[in-house]
Design a binder for these strands. Sequence first.
DNA 1: AACATTTTCAACCGCAGGAGT
DNA 2: GACTCCTGCGGTTGAAAATGT
Length: 283
Amino acid sequence: MSNITKKKCNGNEEGAEQRKGPWTLEEDTLLTNYISHNGEGRWNLLAKSSGLKRAGKSCRLRWLNYLKPDIKRGNLTPQEQLLILELHSKWGNRWSKISKYLPGRTDNDIKNYWRTRVQKQARQLNIDSNSHKFIEVVRSFWFPRLINEIKDNSYTNNIKANAPDLLGPILRDSKDLGFNNMDCSTSMSEDLKKTSQFMDFSDLETTMSLEGSRGGSSQCVSEVYSSFPCLEEEYMVAVMGSSDISALHDCHVADSKYEDDVTQDLMWNMDDIWQFNEYAHFN
DNA sequence: AACATTTTCAACCGCAGGAGT
DNA sequence: GACTCCTGCGGTTGAAAATGT
């Protein structure tokens, strides 16, 4: 396949050749330099003026999805996955809208995640990924798993920093948390409340600084969303419902970092799928 | 080691909507 | 209102990388 196409302009062959396919380092540099001097936007003009033999659309896509300085690379954190699942259940395939609530992630990233990970799971369960049933399964099984991951990560990072010798036994204990019989008819905030009943957050107190007395739900919710300080209240209400918002406002939680690749294995194993299938058939 | 299959993700395409004329 | 151009969105593709046999 040729990487060059004849550019059509107003229905006529113009003669100018336009590149397609993967971007080269030189093209990236050219685009980055141009934008640093002239700003982004007006993509067709940019394509002509910068000397790039690319369509304006292609330049825009390359910049927004790859070159822009605040683009985050690497695997999605459990928090981000949780957000995607929840927001998708509310808004469907509105990738661009969803991506606005995940700083540094593009609509393309989220779309790819959904297609390659989530839809794959739905296929394995023989459930339509856009169906109510799949949303229920996600809420009842995947959410608690992700929340558990978040808890584990925050917990183990803290232990790693402060008492590495304790890591082994603690990891074993944390695996025993049970979520498998949660009621699927509840909202996410209710799930979070139930989830918090299974969790002992007392161990997180060295990591978290909580003001005043609050229930486990607020602590849990705070921890889940503490990595997204830029989120606006509209979003928090959309995700959590209004009930947990007030407690969240004055709850300060230490940043949890996911430098280690602890998010790699969040997918379901065969036991999980078997469990989900059972669930799906009896509901 | 060689080949086949699957997964990932960057990039393309068509379409819709807004702005300008 | 009609037309053109530009931008942004969501769906799709296909090459490269990873994994399995």
